[in-house]
């Protein structure tokens, strides 16, 4: 396989995953805005935190003067200058897909191409408040359709594995970023507070990874306990957006590549290391050494894996 093909598969999956993550973050922001006002400027702060979780608050401030729903929605859905806007994600994903069309199945290509065609027909000013939720649902559905098309049709060779790398590195990045933005709420000392504000903050976190129901099935807490939330998203394998789940998949695809290519690459060691840390981790330890530090370290390792993959497999 060409190095460029591997790279395009990697980024294509990453950007499809990101489009879904962006839609989910916006969905949470929207839900919160429907709650009765909380404290001074509560909603504005929440839109701000949506931007921070999406990692695009800096870019936003360069473009807009005011943080409000309309501006945030515009920036995160349609802005071409925001490389993580849904529009940019879909555009980049499709460009990558076009450049490796020969490596994709027809189903994968058509699901992505149709998404792009339909998305580009949407006029930003038509997306009024009441139309936003269904648009966000649609974006998530399209990403799921693509994933389904991929899982259902793609050969389980290096094509598959490079796509998985992209999808799960992105997902792990997203989950760790969401956790880090709210990490102060997840510290054990917060456990006792449990007021209305925190309650909705926790459910925000869970919702932004589509896990508010799942959480209850695992923990059966009457109210979410903050450090359970942290554990759920970091260490519980059952949770498909948890860090350890992402790295279980990554490790599996790493093994897959190792088997196909018959050799071990440095990136494999990096992935394995992170995986082992997560496997050996427990929350007491993580809290003791600092949740924020733990997450920062995770993000660094996760980024290092991308760089290592690019070097090992000639992404250039």
């Amino acid at each position: 396989m060409l190095g460029r093909t591997a790279s395009a598969l990697f980024w294509l999956s990453r950007y499809v995953e990101r489009s879904e993550d962006m839609a989910r973050l916006l969905d949470v922001g929207y839900r919160i805005s429907l709650l009765p006002g909380i404290g001074n400027g509560g909603h504005r702060e929440d839109w701000k935190s949506t931007l921070v979780s999406a990692g695009c608050d800096g870019g936003f401030m360069n473009t807009y003067d005011e943080v409000n729903e309309r501006n945030v929605v515009n920036y995160m859905l349609f802005d071409d200058d925001n490389s993580s806007s849904v529009r940019s994600c879909l555009h980049t994903a499709r460009d990558n897909a076009r450049s490796v069309r020969t490596a994709l199945t027809r189903e994968m290509w058509e699901s992505l191409n149709t998404t792009w065609i339909e998305f580009s027909e949407i006029k930003p000013h038509h997306v009024t408040r009441n139309k936003l939720p269904s648009l966000l649902d649609w974006i998530k559905e399209r990403s799921m359709l693509f994933r389904g098309a991929m899982l259902g049709t793609i050969l389980r060779n290096d094509t598959f594995h490079f796509s998985q790398f992209g999808a799960f590195i992105e997902r792990a990045d997203n989950t760790s970023r969401i956790l880090d933005v709210k990490y102060h709420l997840l510290l054990p000392q917060n456990e006792m507070i449990g007021g209305g504000v925190d309650n909705y903050q926790w459910s925000t976190i869970l919702r932004s990874v589509s896990a508010h129901r799942n959480y209850r099935w695992i923990y059966r807490d009457s109210r979410p306990k903050p450090w359970h939330v942290a554990e759920f998203l970091i260490l519980r394998r059952e949770m498909p957006r948890s860090l350890i789940h992402c790295y279980t998949w990554l490790a599996e695809s790493m093994n897959g590549i190792e088997q196909i290519y018959g050799e071990r690459s440095p990136s494999m060691d990096i992935a394995r290391q992170t995986y082992d840390t997560l496997r050996a981790g427990d929350m007491t330890m993580i809290f003791a050494s600092g949740l924020h530090e733990f997450l920062q370290n995770f993000v660094t390792c996760n980024n290092k894996l991308t760089t290592a993959l690019a070097t090992d497999y000639n992404f250039a």
Binding site: M1, L2, T5, S99, Y313
Partner: peptide
């Protein structure tokens, strides 16, 4: 694409994984 190819020792090669 052109950037996938290179010449080495008198032959043409593709950059692969």
């Amino acid at each position: 694409e052109g950037r996938d190819l290179f010449v080495d020792d008198g032959y043409l090669y593709m950059r692969t994984t």
